[in-house]
Amino acid sequence: MKIIGRVWKYGDDVNTDVIFPGKYTYTVTDPQEMAKIALEDLDADFAKKVHKGDIIVGGKNFGCGSSREQAASCLLYAGVGAIIAKSFARIFFRNCINFGLPALTSAEAVANLKHGEQIEIDMEKGKIKTESGVYQFPPLPKEIVGIFDAGGLIPYTQRKLGIEPKEQLNNEDN
């Protein structure tokens, strides 16, 4: 799988409250509406201008704070193809894997990537091709890669339990 998109570059400790404000956690549940408020309190322009496949680049501890998985899913619904960071907060990282959203770590790429540049991520080869060079990211642990490859935790669990998926999954439309 190749992901091609423009870089949206942010800093360290981007937290779940600025990605998906707490006041919306029980009231905004439609994926299209969720996409519109992605990163609302960090970058008001983002949701209006993001294109499918675009890539968010953050510093250390991306996604710190709440366990709310809408912080991962709203980015997916907004069209984000991948997130590259120096490190991820652990629950946010789990939520990304569980939604099949690539969360990649490369301090070197983060240091050199520029806001707005077009990059290409090769998931199989673990490479990020950029204007300043090619960067490697480590693969997911073998125990986890199956969840990601299945498209997320729910399809993975259905496969494990021998259940045929009945409908297109969308984990937020309660």
Binding site: G65, N95, I154, T157
Partner: peptide, 30 residues
């Protein structure tokens, strides 16, 4: 717990940690 402050119960000598909503749904399933 499907809440980040689930770490609290370590004060009682428990191992406790936060998880996401989908993970809680899977625990309900299996």
């Amino acid at each position: 717990g499907a809440d980040s402050h689930t770490t609290s119960y370590g004060a009682f000598g428990a191992f406790s940690t936060g998880i996401g909503r989908s993970e809680m749904a899977v625990i309900m399933a299996c």
